[in-house]
Amino acid sequence: MEELFGNFGQLLSSTIRNATPLIFAALGGMFSERSGVVNIGLEGLMLISAFAGVVGAFLSGSALVGLGTAMAAGLAFALIHAVMTITFEADQIISGTAINLLALGGTGFLMVEVFGSGGTSPNVQGFSAVRIPLLADIPLLGPALFNQSLLVYLMYALVPTTYFVLFKTPFGLRLRGTGESPEAVDTAGVNVFRMRYYGVALSGILAALGGAYLSMGILSAFTENMTNGRGFIALAALIFGRWHPVGAAGAALLFGFAQAFTFQAPQDVVPLEFLQMLPYVLTLIVLAGFGGRAIAPAAVGKPYRKE
């Protein structure tokens, strides 16, 4: 009995850990898409910030500095996407794909430049688990939910914050309006370009938190292509969650569970490769079952031009 609970607790805890980067990235993607810019570059944003975080922490010896460099890198790459798609009217999906390749090639290039070789970076100071007294004592849920890295607690706070910002504040109203009908927002005297820049910039910062959690929360080092499709799964979570913070977080938890299950399942019964396929297969099923019915912001994907 105890063993069963123990396994369940482990599974839950692992689910939270796997879902956290997805939730950060999905919330980031939400700001971008709600402003009308598709951000398929979430994968790359996470990757470059996972790397930048490790470099920052490596050079300074401080995890917090690492978090700062991660966010700066995520923001910088997001701004590249913003400049290309909003100002220069590049195709958003293609620009996002380029961001992913840029992050992949860029981290490869910089691994050699900074650490002297590719592969895996040296270990750095990360965000280790912090036990929250009392809450962590709740049976079953406590240890899984409240004995986690600081970044996980930040994620808990960000879901309701995102909801509030998006649905209760003037900023959120304008952002949603921009994604639905930039013309309407423009004629109401709101600067469409600025709103879209905000949306994409926020996606960079939030995806960076996800990337930092991968390299400094789950691991304490960077390995090449360590995001491994998480940015795309986060996008699927965003669609499945109907561009709503709570929905996206719920979908991300589902995908996180699939990943956690992959690690926990007995490998002697099912070949490893099939277990590893599971999250991706699940994403496919979810998209096929629900993706078509989801209604994206009406103007997403289309550049806005005034003349």
Binding site: F88, A90, S95, A98, L102, G105, G106, G108, V112, E113
Partner: peptide
């Protein structure tokens, strides 16, 4: 210069190749 520079070049080309306004 690391081999990965070519990947970076390709990414930048891709980034720019649909930039109508540019």
């Amino acid at each position: 210069v690391p081999l990965d520079l070519s990947d970076v070049l390709l990414a930048v080309i891709l980034l720019l190749v649909t930039a109508t306004k540019l």
